[in-house]
């Protein structure tokens, strides 16, 4: 099934104490996005000020290169961003 790359922001949080192994900036915004078919997908949401995040906003998926935890080639990691 093709789930597409767009969804609706179901919930979000600004993570100020990150988990072990988090390779990105702190704080970061974690988004819970509902796809039109129903499934939900967690990822960081980028390209948006924290104060501008709103439950119900339209978002789309994008890919970003992130350094690997134990060296080696970068990982391609999916992120959400506002449409």
């Amino acid at each position: 099934m093709d789930l597409g790359v767009k969804g609706i922001l179901f919930s979000y949080t600004i993570v100020r104490i990150p988990p072990a192994g988090w390779p990105g900036e702190v704080p970061y915004a974690l988004a819970q996005v509902e796809l039109p078919q129903g499934p939900q997908v967690l990822a960081e949401i980028i390209g948006c000020e924290f104060d501008d995040l709103r439950i119900g906003m339209d978002v789309e998926m994008t890919l970003q290169a992130v350094p690997a935890e134990n060296g080696g080639p970068d990982k391609a990691v999916y992120k959400w961003r506002p449409v």
Partner: peptide, 23 residues
């Protein structure tokens, strides 16, 4: 360690609860 979920930023129990709280 090095699991894909670690790069997504959601492998954090309290962040999961925070999402529930926000909603």
């Amino acid at each position: 360690e090095d699991a894909p979920e670690r790069y997504i930023g959601g492998d954090h129990m309290m962040a999961g609860y925070a999402l529930r709280g926000k909603r």
